[in-house]
Amino acid sequence: MSQRKAIFVTGGASGIGRAIALYFGQRDYFVGLADIDEAGMRETLDMVGHGFVFQQALDVRDRAAWDRALDGFATAAGGRIDVVANNAGIPLGGLLIENNEEEITRCLDINLKGVLFGAQAAYSHLKQTAPGSCLLNTASAAGIYGTPGASVYSATKFGVRAITESLDAEWAQDGIKVRSIMPSFIDTPLLDHNANAMSNDMIRRRVMDAGLEITPVEEVAKAAWDAVHGEKLHTTVGKTAKTLAFGARWLPGRLRKQTRSAARPLLR
């Protein structure tokens, strides 16, 4: 088995996945990239800038494809995988009654089923490099308290949080760490998508109009590193996430009132 540690990152073509790949690659990890965007992965590969990079087209909704991707990466990485970053995800905003069946199903399948499939496929590889190996799930501030105008997305990220907590208990005896990062609004290309199929509003505009901060993606990459190498189960990233976590724990009544107030403009 190779002595160089290895990380496999889904959603590695851009945004948080790319930032995690770069951060770990700069710290001597062998990096595996997975995405449906092959051109974007090639760009990330060039940015990592050395020979210890592997890329694989992967639709995280395809359970069998997960096994093929991880087996291929393990071979390329000298027989080991130390970290699997379950990062691939898509946004979905707008009122629930505005969301159509197709986009609800797609969001649930990618953001939730994809994480479950990734965990199943990763287990045997991470057990082999335990203790100290890690499944890192990308949750969200929307998994701390439900976000008005993003009920489906919030449901998936609450699910990712639950998966993390469940597997933290299930896999502890195997020496496998299970962690999540919970970013708020991060400066990635996802912010430039429409909120949903019925909307012409970009997510970035909605965030800015609400007066919320947009956190640099590099902060998420550092948080991912700290989560993998630390003991904290959930790592919040950005002011909004930290404020929500504090409010949900210590001021739930006030947070509920603030959330209802924030929802009023969406209902007009």
Rank of each mutant, 00 (worst) to 15 (best):
L136N: 09
A142S: 14
A121E: 14
T138W: 04
S124N: 03
Y153D: 06
A122V: 09
Y153H: 13
G149Q: 01
T129R: 05
A121T: 12
G146R: 05
L136S: 10
S124Y: 09
L136E: 08
G143E: 00
T129S: 14
P131I: 04
A141S: 12
T138M: 10
Y153K: 13
L136I: 03
L136D: 09
L135K: 01
G149V: 07
L135E: 09
N137H: 01
G143R: 02
S151I: 14
G143S: 02
Q128T: 11
L126M: 12
P148L: 11
T138I: 15
N137V: 00
A141W: 02
P148N: 10
G146V: 12
A139K: 01
A122T: 06
L126H: 03
A121G: 10
L126F: 06
A122P: 08
K127Y: 11
L126A: 10
Y145H: 15
T138C: 11
G149D: 03
P131A: 00
S124C: 08
A121N: 15
S140T: 13
K127Q: 13
G132N: 03
K127C: 13
T147E: 15
G149N: 07
A150T: 13
I144W: 01
V152M: 04
Y153F: 14
A141L: 10
I144S: 11
L135Y: 07
A130H: 01
A139V: 08
Q128G: 11
L135I: 05
T129D: 03
H125Y: 11
Y145A: 15
A150F: 07
H125R: 04
G149S: 09
P131Y: 13
A122Y: 08
N137Y: 00
Y153C: 07
L135A: 02
L135T: 01
Y123I: 14
A139C: 12
A122L: 04
N137S: 00
G149E: 03
I144T: 14
S140P: 08
S133Y: 08
A142C: 13
A130P: 00
S124I: 12
S133T: 06
G143K: 00
Y123L: 15
H125V: 12
S151E: 04
A150H: 12
L126I: 11
A139Q: 03
A142I: 07
N137I: 00
A130L: 02
G132A: 13
G132Y: 05
S151D: 12
G132V: 10
L136H: 06
I144Y: 06
A150G: 15
A142V: 07
A130Q: 05
G132F: 11
T129A: 09
S133C: 13
S151V: 10
A142R: 02
L135V: 00
S124G: 14
P131W: 08
I144H: 06
S124T: 14
